[in-house]
Design a protein around this nucleic acid. Structure first.
Length: 391
DNA sequence: TCTGGGGTCCTAGGACCC
DNA sequence: TCTGGGGTCCTAGGACCC
């Protein structure tokens, strides 16, 4: 059975989308100059979320600190992120893609896979991909790359070839010419650590990797990962295009301080804030969580994480915060400055039978009331922001 | 230059049960 | 009294993705 998969990837998504909005408002096109989307540039710890092609040509990269990019290019144009607008752009581009095949998997806000296997009716895949790409540009004002291949892996690798506004193929029989010469780091799932480990063993290209037996690879990266890498390096991937999404398995929030802090009060305040955010998201998605975890990050980026199980699943901020407060001393000595604190919940269920406890905290009603008011305030804020946008 | 925020999956060890 | 082996659950940490 021969499959044909498209991978559609928005070029410099957040930057392009901000550019579209500015152009609509009669402003210059920031895609044509060195520009980035980032957090507050006056915060030393802000990093770049997206960079324009001219910025990338200067060596400015996603995830780089803004302060560093400004040294490279003092005239860099910096725009803040606009998440509501990005969601609108994402919906628009997904809607057009869906017209080409209902077998669509949204992989992230700016990427999707289309299974085109039974949708081409003898037409040339590259021609169809080109029409799709040009339609998005004409109707929405931003460009995409389309990767065309025999499976999801090859389609995704292909969309990463030359950018922007391009269609590339990577069929199984093109793997030796187009994929094997690439460095191992270009293979999906090979990150910095795995690359270092492979290089240390003389494995430089994806071709080197493809020729390695899964057994010798298993010594380096573990059995399961080795099997996957071996398959992928040979261009094999039988994972289906998933139209349904598994439910979330965890929810977390974190705060990075503008300076490392060791003041217990400040740490607790941050913990309180992230607990409010996480519990609110739990309630909004009608989840309850049975495990609470906290993590702290030190200035050398080392992370310590502690978790505990709750007596019963909850979505109550106070109970989650209490658990977090109990965990904190296990993760932090109370002295060493912290860069970041985070709080996560997992073991999510939609289990809503209240297991009646004889020992229910008498403050429970108060806690729930507090949460209701918090949720109402958040909803009101969201309405106010939506109203501001419409104006 | 000094590194955000939100996720997923895998591994390995210990506890506990049969 | 001492022993094996398998299964499950939990925790901590590490790697990757966008």
């Amino acid at each position: 059975m021969h499959r044909i998969i498209f991978h559609i990837d928005v070029n410099s998504a957040f930057l392009s989308w901000s550019a579209v909005k500015l152009v609509q408002a009669g402003e210059p096109d920031i895609r044509l100059v060195p520009s980035v989307v980032s957090g507050d540039p006056s915060d030393r710890r802000s990093i770049i979320t997206a960079a324009s092609m001219p910025a990338k040509k200067l060596g400015i990269k996603t995830a780089q600190p803004v302060s560093m990019a400004l040294r490279t290019c003092p005239s860099l144009v910096i725009v803040p992120g606009d998440w509501a607008w990005y969601k609108e752009c994402s919906r628009g581009f997904i809607a057009i893609c869906r017209e080409y095949s209902p077998v669509l998997e949204q992989f992230s806000i700016d990427e999707c896979f289309l299974d085109m296997s039974f949708r081409l009716y003898g037409k040339d895949p590259v021609e169809v991909a080109t029409v799709l790409k040009d339609r998005i540009k004409a109707e929405l004002g931003f460009t995409v790359n389309v990767g065309v291949g025999s499976n999801k892996l090859l389609a995704k690798m292909a969309s990463d070839f030359e950018k922007p506004d391009k269609v590339h193929t990577l069929w199984l029989d093109e793997v030796p010419q187009k994929m094997w010469p690439l460095g191992v780091r270009d293979l999906l799932w090979v990150g910095k650590k795995t690359e270092a480990r492979l290089l240390a063993n003389g494995i430089r290209t994806i071709g080197d990797l493809s020729r390695l037996g899964p057994n010798s690879l298993a010594q380096l990266v573990g059995k399961k990962f080795a099997e996957q890498l071996h398959e992928n390096a040979n261009g094999h991937d039988d994972s289906p295009v998933r139209t349904e999404y598994p439910e979330a398995k965890s929810i977390s929030a974190e705060r990075t301080f503008s300076q490392d802090i060791s003041e217990a009060r400040d740490i607790d305040r941050a913990l309180f804030k992230v607990a409010c955010i996480v519990a609110h998201r739990l309630r909004r998605h009608r989840f309850r969580a049975s495990t609470v975890s906290i993590f702290v990050k030190y200035k050398d980026f080392s992370v310590v994480q502690k978790q505990c199980r709750l007596e019963q699943p909850t979505d109550v901020t106070a109970l989650i915060l209490n658990a977090a407060r109990r965990l904190l001393p296990q993760a932090w000595d109370g002295v060493t400055p912290l860069r970041q604190v985070g709080l996560g919940v997992s073991g999510l269920t939609h289990d809503f039978y209240e297991q009646m406890s004889l020992f229910e905290d008498p403050k429970m009603e108060y806690y729930r009331d507090w949460d209701r008011q918090y949720d109402e305030q958040r909803a009101e804020d969201a309405r106010a922001r939506a109203y501001e946008r419409k104006k």
